[in-house]
Structure formats: C-alpha cells, structure tokens
Simulated scan of single mutants.
Amino acid sequence: MGVSSLIIDSHLHVFFSKKQPWRPLVEETLHHMDMAGITQTCLLPDPQWTGTFYPSKDEMMFQAETLSEIASAFPGRFLPMLFICPLLPHDFTLDLMERYMMKGPLVGAKFHVSLYADDDKYEPIYSFLERHDLPLLFHAWYKTVEHYAYESNPSHIAVAARKHPNLRILMAHLTGSKLRGIMDIKKYPNVSIDTSGSQPEEGYVQRALEELGPDRVLYGSDYPIRAFSTQRARIESVEMSKEAREKVLYGNAQRFFRKGTEQ
C-alpha cells in the first residue's frame, strides 16, 4: 500500500483566544503532527473563540493578527485561514481580507455557522475570493439532531458553487455530508471535499473517490476534535493507486491552499 512521506492535513484547528495564549497550543499541535508524520496543516481558529458565531470587528482583528503571528513563528508548517463573519460590514471584511490575505500571510477564508452558504450576504466576499483566486473552506453537514441555526448543508454549498464557478471551495466533513453530500457537489468541479467529520465509517472515502475522482478528495482530520491516527486510518485503509493516495494526502492540498499570485 505504501505511506506517503509528505502529508498535508486540510482541516485542523487551534483553539486560541484572548484568555488562551496560542503558543502552548501550537507547540502541542506540532508535537502531535510530528508524531503522526504530518508535514503541514491548514490552520483554522475556533469559530466560537469569542463564545459566539458572530465576532466583532475587534475580535476579527485579534484573530487575523494571531494567525499571522503563528505563521511567522513557524514558517512552512501552517496554512492559516481567516474565519469570516458575513454579517460584519463588507467594507471592513474586504479590507481585512486584502490586508491579511492579499498582502499578508493568510492563505484564504473559512466559513462556519453564520448564515447558509447560499445567502446573498456572502456575495461580495465570494466575488472577492473568486476574483483573486483565493481558496474557501466551508463547514457543511447533514444533521437530524444538534443542528445549529444557519448551519449549511452540502446543498447550500452547491448553490454557491453554481453561482461562482471559478470560486475554489473545499467542503468540510465527508462523514458529515455522506453520500447525499457527495452527490450534491458532484457536478461542480470547483468543489472538493475533505475526509474529516465524526468517526471514520467504512465506504465513504472510497465512494467519494469513485464519484468525484481522486483530484477532489483531500485528507483532513479536524484535529484536536479527532485524533490524527484514526483520521489517517481512513485513508490508509482504502485501496487506491499510489498516484491517487499522493493526491489525497498532499497533492490536492498543495493545489488548493495557494493564493492566485502563487501559481
């Protein structure tokens, strides 16, 4: 089967806050990454680091500055994504994106649970990301219980992808989206999926590879909510070619987590 010597995790959190300094959390994360053979990771803050899904302007600035500090302290290990609240004034949000993505170290945007992904309030932000060829990671999940208000499911992601065919989207949580989610995004080649979400369940990675192809499936753990070991096992337990495995473990992430200026 073989194990790649280069692995990029496409879904990882560091739960820093104004009360919880980032450095000990990052150092612990790096220790676990090294133990698991993870070379580099996407870096997502806790979407509820302020206790709400709707941060203030000051809280957004704190997050952007902290992510920039982490990227500077550990070059080459993290691909930081700015959590964006679409309810803040668009002028502020677009200025923040220009300063910290276009001209700074942040790679792209992360949306969690603020509004459904097909809401018109996202339009100026989607257009900015599409125009500048910046990646977007969007939380999505099909749930019957414990569903948050305004928590997007894959059908919402599909609407955004159809309206913005050049917007590069990574839909989070294969095991939360399941087969229904795979089929929702199948006809939109600008949408990929990461393999995180809940505990591993047999068959979903294989089905994603069959329906979407190996170019649209990215390994992701959702660490520290899930352990690297069990999430790696999702990939290592599936029969696939060496080329496909390399794409899932790092090649697709290298293509996705880049700025348009880095082509």
Rank of each mutant, 00 (worst) to 15 (best):
W141I: 13
I125A: 04
G251W: 01
E236H: 12
P135Y: 05
L137K: 09
Y223D: 07
G260A: 00
R162K: 10
T230V: 12
Y100E: 06
G37N: 08
N166I: 03
H11N: 08
H13L: 00
L137Q: 14
M33A: 05
L136W: 00
L82M: 04
A253N: 02
A64P: 09
F15V: 11
N252A: 04
G176A: 00
M97N: 13
T230H: 12
D133K: 14
I185E: 03
M33P: 05
L88E: 09
E243G: 10
P89D: 07
S196K: 05
I84H: 08
L67C: 04
M183N: 13
L30F: 00
L209R: 10
F92G: 10
H147P: 09
M33Q: 09
R23Q: 07
A140H: 09
I8S: 03
D34I: 03
L249S: 13
I185G: 02
Y150T: 12
D133N: 09
P80A: 06
S10E: 00
A233Q: 13
T261H: 13
Y122G: 01
S229T: 15
D184A: 07
V145D: 04
S229I: 11
H11F: 00
R131P: 14
D133M: 08
Y142K: 12
R77C: 03
A160H: 02
P21N: 13
D58I: 09
D58N: 12
M183F: 14
A71R: 12
A64E: 05
K187S: 15
L170Q: 00
P55I: 05
N252L: 01
F228T: 12
F15K: 12
F83E: 10
L94C: 05
I38L: 07
S17G: 03
Y150S: 15
P47V: 04
E98L: 06
H139I: 03
P21K: 08
R245H: 02
P80F: 00
I169L: 01
R207F: 08
L115F: 01
L67M: 14
P86L: 03
P89G: 10
R226K: 10
S155G: 12
R232E: 08
P105F: 07
E59D: 11
G181D: 01
I182V: 08
L6R: 13
L134M: 04
S177E: 01
